Amino acid sequence: MNSEYRQIFDTTNQGLVVLDRNLTVTDWNRWMEMHSSIRADEIIGRPLFDFYPSLQHKQAFTRAVKCAFSFGSFGYFSQKLHHYLFPMRNPHAGIELFPRMQQHCTLGPLRDESGQINSLFIAVQDVTEFVLYEHRLIEMTRVDSLTGLYNRRFLTQRLEEELERSRRHGNPLCLMLMDVDHFKQINDSRGHLCGDQVLRSLAQTLRDMFRKSDILGRFGGEEFVCILPETTLEKACILTERCRTSIADIELFYQNTPFAITISAGVTELTVNDSADSLIRRADNAMYQAKQAGRNRCICTPPPPPSP
């Protein structure tokens, strides 16, 4: 490689790897050195699989290599399908979401002066920042900004999906609605900043109590909802009562003054005749009954008998 091309090869802002027919590394640019922590003089002359054995088990990679050498074809490894080809540390923010660098990779043939394909190249593009940005945009459309829980729009969508899944597999499904008691008084007497603190504290308490498979969110105002897949009414009522007592035991502080909150909750179970709206309506009616009965309690409403 002449000096002009070598400068481009080593200063381009993407990884470049050259392999011979035995998949031995014949070139490894500075970008690859920096992000892989493998020096060129360590890897050049060695089989790529010595350093990245997982590539041997990627069928898409093996197929792309064979097509490149046999037919001169190009192969593409999109981030959405493969996430990455070379496992490298994420050099950006969001390591908790994406510990590995997200990559878009291109693999293609290299021909010699006689037109024979004796080697191939792999170009590695770091797309982690774009993926993080895309992830944040998606989160903004489905997460409540105050509590960090799912918002009403996303909850409604998920409820429809869980109803369909429950019917398809014959598994139980319950819905729980809860509302902070006397929340208007908190806002009026202590201010909206205190009200916001109450909602954030409540969200964190609830988040710690539910399973990862449960779908918890803020339905609006001081009202929260949890979709409980594969949960019978009996178990849902036990869980709701545990939430209620745990929340009543929380000691909150605002301007160094302690205070407590309680919730009223309604729980119901899916029937074959239910729609998302009817399930929500029945849970909401149960919650209203809990309010009417004195608050700080949960009402579990059995599903109505099936229509004749």
Rank of each mutant, 00 (worst) to 15 (best):
P302A: 07
F86I: 15
Q103W: 02
V18H: 09
I38S: 05
G217W: 05
H92N: 14
N256S: 14
R242M: 07
A276I: 12
P305W: 02
R242Q: 14
K66P: 00
Y5G: 04
F130W: 07
F69C: 05
R6F: 01
F224Y: 14
K291T: 06
T11K: 02
T301P: 04
Y150E: 08
R153T: 09
V65K: 07
S145W: 02
H135D: 15
P53M: 09
S264A: 08
R111L: 10
S201T: 03
I261M: 01
S307K: 04
H57A: 15
A68V: 06
S278M: 12
N151F: 01
A248E: 15
L193H: 13
T268G: 12
V272C: 03
G294S: 09
D41R: 03
I227R: 00
S70K: 14
M176P: 01
P229Q: 07
G148W: 05
S166A: 15
N90F: 00
A203I: 00
K66E: 01
P306H: 01
Y288D: 08
I43G: 06
Q197H: 10
S213V: 07
P53R: 11
R167M: 00
Q157W: 11
F71L: 08
Y133L: 12
K58T: 03
L120R: 06
R6Q: 13
Q255F: 07
T271I: 00
F224H: 10
E162P: 01
A93C: 10
G15F: 04
I44A: 13
P91I: 02
F49G: 04
R89S: 12
F210A: 01
F210K: 00
E161Q: 11
N13F: 12
L173E: 06
F219P: 06
G148N: 08
L85T: 09
P109H: 07
N2K: 09
L279H: 10
V65C: 08
C298P: 03
G94V: 05
P305Q: 03
